[in-house]
Amino acid sequence: MGITTVAGVAVQAQHRASCHCGTVELLLDLPEGIVDPRRCDCSMCRRRGAIAASVARDGLQIVRGQAHLRLYQFNTHVAEHYFCGVCGIYTHHRRRSNPDQYGYNVACLEGIDPFALGTIPVNDGVNHPADRTG
């Protein structure tokens, strides 16, 4: 079970998320709330500083702004990092460690204060499991 309430605000089973300027809007299926919130210490996540949480790949719908999303890939070019081409806010990414899931920017959830989540675990992205051989 995930986090279903943040500072008195309920996480909806279908919750809207948007970039800063509102050009990109997502609809996320979050029946269990915010699942697996985390930070990552890889070179990309360290710089963007976002808290990411998981949603099933079919649980993320782009409602508006598809044409304004920009894709960024690096290293193995497996993960797909998306951000708004207008305001630059990272909205979501297709996960390298689990391509059947998206990670989404918790700060983009409408009405949810990411600072009210308290301490968030940090994943070791520098030593990513997909980089290990054998």
Rank of each mutant, 00 (worst) to 15 (best):
M1A: 14
G2N: 01
G2R: 02
I3T: 10
T4P: 06
T4F: 05
T4D: 11
T5Q: 15
T5M: 12
A7G: 08
A10I: 02
A10M: 04
Q12L: 10
Q14A: 06
Q14S: 11
H15S: 02
R16F: 09
R16Q: 14
S18H: 14
S18C: 11
S18R: 15
H20G: 02
T23K: 13
E25G: 00
E25T: 13
L26P: 02
L27S: 06
L27H: 05
L28K: 01
L28S: 07
D29H: 05
V35L: 09
R38Q: 05
C40N: 02
S43L: 08
M44Y: 12
R46E: 13
R47E: 00
R47D: 05
R47W: 00
R48V: 15
G49S: 03
G49W: 02
I51W: 13
A52Q: 08
A53H: 05
S54L: 11
A56M: 05
G59M: 07
L60H: 08
L60M: 08
Q61D: 11
Q61S: 09
I62S: 00
R64G: 00
Q66D: 12
Q66P: 10
Q66Y: 03
A67I: 03
H68P: 02
R70H: 09
Y72N: 07
Q73G: 07
Q73A: 10
F74W: 10
N75C: 13
H77L: 08
A79G: 12
E80D: 09
E80Y: 04
E80R: 15
H81A: 01
F83S: 09
F83N: 02
V86H: 04
C87R: 08
C87V: 08
G88L: 06
I89R: 03
Y90T: 12
T91W: 01
H92C: 06
H93G: 11
R95Q: 12
S97M: 14
N98D: 13
N98W: 03
P99R: 00
D100Y: 03
Q101E: 11
G103C: 10
Y104F: 13
N105H: 03
N105M: 04
V106N: 00
A107P: 01
C108Y: 05
I112C: 01
F115A: 13
F115K: 14
F115D: 14
L117R: 03
I120M: 07
P121D: 10
V122T: 15
N123M: 15
D124N: 12
H128S: 03
A130R: 11
A130M: 15
D131K: 11
R132W: 11
G134Q: 12
